[in-house]
Design a protein around this nucleic acid. Structure first.
Length: 425
DNA sequence: TCTGGGGTCCTAGGACCC
DNA sequence: TCTGGGGTCCTAGGACCC
């Protein structure tokens, strides 16, 4: 049996842990740059505030109901996520961290006979240790565990749902829309609807060859899992990424080449850091920048360039040099740039980099490597970009808009929660 | 004025190999 | 009238996930 643990309204719950006055109030969290709503408390959902709704369009309803609005605080959410995952790991060792707020557990080797009891214990412990409320869905396949978890939120008050026989399974399948099954997105949802497949139960009973023809083998696995036939196992070791992106929208549009350079150099430095963290080196770098597509009154431009590196690298200095070469090629004067980014791919393990017979810079690479070890060490200890490449600059005009960010309660000494004795009434 | 930032897998088709 | 039978690698595009 698999369990899926899902944190309820995760980002909103993180904010509430450190500010209990938010309890029972509508809370929303905005995406980077304070753009869209990406998380909502139940009270906010009840007000009809939709996921991904642009904040400026929701202004009226947010003000009218005094919705508490926060900028994304990923330092906080990442740290809280880690606490939740560590707690789960203590209870059930076979754990797959599926996303920032979800984990699959493999219950096959647990000594429990009463899985319902185990599920309740998981909920209680996570709540007690971290302050985060979670729901637990348990079923014989991952897809059904996901479905059970959805079912919990809509139909139960206990926060736990167990699919352990055919009858219960069919009941949960019948109560779930086909479009809400894990693996059915907008396109497939439409296709299924057109063919009269409306519930998850209909989907589970659809001819497998039809599914395979229209939804490929991925759809086939999904339907088999709905029928209780496991196709996916627990993935405990996070696999190294095959591509890494760092990109941001700008707080204010950028027209100046020098400022765009600083932004792209900074994104490149971040990509290089991520590469070193997973011990990879990249053969390909993709630089891109574009204008605001929501402004049809302004001239539009999408600039993009792929650069091939003959010898794979994860050196910040070398990568910034290459990125700047690419940026120079795609930059056009006279546009309002809204976003830029760097994508690296063609990743290889850093200790298996094929060197170039004719390249004479082995000595330089060795020096780079030593400098980077020192750079990572200093920045880990003293804070990101304490030591940086000069091109990254100190200009903040392109930085994210984050007007309502809460404190980094768990990751910065200066921002710890303070509680005064006279408040302990 | 204001619209996020990451990832994965699969398939088809083209270029190439023997 | 008729033009083999295997492969690999790469890319683009489309679907999905959080």
């Amino acid at each position: 049996m698999f369990a899926l643990i899902d944190c309820n309204n995760f980002y909103a719950s993180c904010e509430r842990v450190f500010d209990p006055t938010l309890e029972d109030k509508p809370v929303v969290i905005l995406s980077n740059n304070d753009g869209c709503v990406i998380a909502r408390s139940n009270e906010a959902k009840a007000l009809g505030i939709n996921m991904a709704a642009p904040a400026f369009m929701m202004k009226e309803v947010l003000e009218k109901h005094q919705v508490q609005v926060f900028s994304s605080n990923y330092a906080l959410y990442g740290n809280m996520s880690n606490r939740v995952m560590c707690t789960l790991h203590e209870l059930v060792p076979a754990l797959e961290v599926y996303s920032i707020d979800e984990a699959f557990l493999d219950l096959r080797n647990m000594p429990y006979t009463d899985l319902d009891k185990l599920a309740r214990r998981i909920r209680k412990t996570v709540r007690q240790y971290t302050g985060i409320p979670v729901c637990v869905g348990i079923a014989p396949t991952k897809t059904l565990a996901k479905l059970a978890n959805r079912y919990v939120k809509e139909y139960t008050k206990t926060g736990v749902f167990l699919i352990d026989n055919d009858q219960v399974r069919d009941q949960a399948l019948a109560a779930t829309a086909a479009g809400d099954v894990w693996g059915v997105g907008r396109q497939y949802g439409k296709l299924l609807e057109e063919h009269g497949i409306s519930s998850a139960l209909d989907l589970a009973r659809t001819d497998i060859n039809w599914i395979k023809k229209h939804m490929s083998v991925v759809g086939e696995r999904m339907v088999r899992e709905l029928r209780g036939e496991p196709c996916y196992d627990l993935d405990e070791q996070p696999q190294p990424k095959k591509g890494i992106i760092t990109s941001r929208s700008f707080g204010t549009p950028v027209t100046d080449y020098a400022i765009l350079q600083e932004a792209v150099a900074t994104f490149t430095a971040r990509c290089a850091e991520k590469l070193r963290k997973q011990k990879s080196a990249a053969h390909l770098m993709h630089v891109f920048t574009f204008t605001n597509r929501h402004r049809p009154d302004q001239p539009q431009y999408y600039g993009s360039k792929v650069l091939h590196l003959p010898v794979a690298t994860n050196s910040t200095m070398e990568m910034i040099e290459v990125a700047m070469r690419g940026l120079k090629l795609i930059f056009r004067k006279g546009y309002y740039y809204k976003k830029a980014g760097i994508m690296v791919s063609g990743l290889v393990p850093e200790d298996q980099v094929q060197t170039d017979l004719f390249a004479m810079n082995e000595r330089k690479r060795e020096l780079d490597r030593k400098a980077l070890v020192a750079l990572d060490k200093i920045n880990r200890r003293m804070g990101r970009d304490t030591v940086r490449v000069a091109l990254q600059g100190y200009n903040s005009s392109w930085h994210l808009r984050q007007e309502r960010k809460s404190r980094c309660y768990t990751t910065r000494w200066a921002e710890l929660l303070e509680i005064g004795a006279n408040e302990l009434r």
